[in-house]
Design a protein around this nucleic acid. Structure first.
Length: 279
DNA sequence: AACCTCCTCAACCGCGTACAA
DNA sequence: CTTGTACGCGGTTGAGGAGGT
């Protein structure tokens, strides 16, 4: 019994760390996607530039205005698609900003990339989501939250945009989630900081559909110091074990995505099924 | 048939990091 | 170190279609 509780707390702790990573980034949403790295024991902020936004904003405004006069917006026509497909056949993916010059297509590079990645690429599966895909998305979302790119990487043939849209239009309603009553669970730790410099020791965890918590409930779990140390120790050991066969151990730096997929495997283990089923 | 409402999803937007010059 | 460019991500928007009245 005590063991089961410990595992539960351990799982919660892992999810809290993942959630904190997700929630602690600079506001605006974009920063959590690129290959950010986290330190195994102490999270390191040195790679995050303090005020990069202001440095870039003027330049980007200028860029935006410049582009606005020349680029077309809105839905793509078949002819535009054909031009883009022909371009990729010849030049491959990348260099999206050069497409306009090379093909006469009046679209910005960003738009071209998006069109290819989300629609034209032959690897994309179209049509209805299967029950297996749906189940997979639900489970992955439970663990990773709105990290659509990470989720999409584990749903073959589906793009982050497809997964995101499917979640927002189908699964949210199916699971009874809406903006007003999205569940948010808080873990309070009495003696151990989850987040560097955070005196309140709180980490918000994404809503977990189907976990039996009603929509308006808030759960607070208080963990005493010794228990927390045991959890920390166990988390560290298990994480290191899971990484033991990889080169990550040589530096103890882990790419963000791999860290989370490792976490996924661990939590799957505690849930009673293997993450290999997910692939 | 006309109008309205709701839903879906492709596309846009803002912001982030990486990297080369 | 700064600047410019490229690329990637999540949140949001809005056109267009479906269904109801």
């Amino acid at each position: 019994m005590r063991c089961a509780v410990l595992f539960h707390l351990l799982e919660s702790s892992i999810e809290a760390v993942v959630a904190w990573q997700r929630w602690s980034g600079p506001s605006g949403g974009g920063g959590q996607n690129s290959p950010r790295v986290v330190h195994l024991c102490s999270l390191n902020f040195s790679r995050i530039k303090p005020d990069f936004r202001s440095a870039n904003s003027n330049k980007k405004e200028h860029e935006k205005k410049k582009v606005k006069f020349h680029t077309k917006k809105g839905l793509w026509t078949k002819e535009e698609d054909r031009l883009l497909i022909d371009y990729v056949k010849v030049h491959g993916k990348g260099q999206w900003n050069k497409i306009a010059n090379r093909t006469g297509l009046k679209r910005c590079g960003k738009s071209c990339r998006l069109r290819w990645m989300n629609y034209l690429s032959p690897n994309i599966k179209k049509g209805e989501f299967s029950e297996e895909e749906e189940d997979l998305i639900i489970r992955l979302h439970k663990l990773l939250g709105n990290r659509w790119s990470l989720i999409a990487k584990r749903v073959p043939g589906r793009t982050d945009n497809q997964v995101k849209n499917y979640w927002n239009s189908h699964l949210r309603r199916k699971l009874g989630i809406n903006d007003q009553n999205e569940k948010r669970v808080y873990f309070r730790q009495s003696s151990k900081q989850v987040k560097a410099g955070d005196d309140h020791h709180q980490a918000a965890v994404d809503p977990s559909p189907g976990d039996g918590i009603t929509s308006t409930e808030t759960i607070e779990i208080t963990v005493d110091q010794s228990t927390q140390q045991a959890i920390d120790h166990r988390v560290l050991n298990d994480t290191q074990e899971s990484m033991a066969s990889t080169s990550y151990m040589t530096t103890s730096w882990i790419p963000d995505a791999d860290y989370e997929l490792s976490t996924l495997a661990m939590t799957d283990h505690f849930n009673g099924y293997s993450s290999f089923d997910l692939a």
